[in-house]
Amino acid sequence: MAALLLALAAVPLIQSFSQSYEIATRQVEQETIAKVAEAALNKLMSGRFDDLNAAVVKVAVPFEIQTPAGPVSAKIDLLGSPAQGTGTFVISGIPYRVQVAVARMFAGHHGVLTPAATAKALTFSYAAPANTMGLPPPPPPGLVVATYSCPDDFLRILVKVTSGRGDREMRLITCRGDMRR
C-alpha cells in the first residue's frame, strides 16, 4: 500500500522534473541565440561601413561574448558587395552558427543625377522656411515639399543565428546609413 502511494506521488514528480529540465535547457539556448544575434549585429553596426557595403577582399570581423564560463571569441568572415558572411560560436559545447546578409535597401546615386540613378536612392522630403532673419516666416505653402535624393547607399543588415541542433533560429534585422559624409 505504501509503495503504491509513493509510486503515485513519484510518477508526476519525474514528469515534472523532465519537463522543467527541458524548458530550462531550451530557455538557456534561446537566450544565448538572442544574445549572440544582438552582439553580432551591434558589432556590425560599429564596424567600417565599407566592410559591409563592399568587402572586395575577405574581411574578418572579430568579436567576443562574455559567458558565465568565460569569454568566447569568434569571427565573422565578410565578403561581397554588399557583404555576405558566416561565423560560428561554440558556447558550452553547443555551436551557434551566425549568418550575415547585407543588402542595399536604398542604392545611392553617387553623384549621378539621372532619373534611373535616383529612382532607387533614399529620398527625404522636407519643407524649410525661407531664410529671412528677423522677419516672421511666410505662411506654409500648402503641401509643397522639397525632396532630396541621398548619394550614399543605405544598408539593411540581416543576422540569422541557428543553434547546434538547427531547430532554433532567430532573425534580427536593422539598418545602417553611411555617416561619413
Binding site: 544582438e38 534580427l172 534585422i173 536593422t174 553611411d178 555617416m179 559624409r181
Partner: peptide, 20 residues
Amino acid sequence: TKALMAARAAVELAVYKYRM
C-alpha cells in the same frame, strides 16, 4: 530584441536625414 533593433533602425534613419 527584434523591437529594439527596429528602434535602432529608426534612429539610424533620423540621424542620417540630419546628416544629409
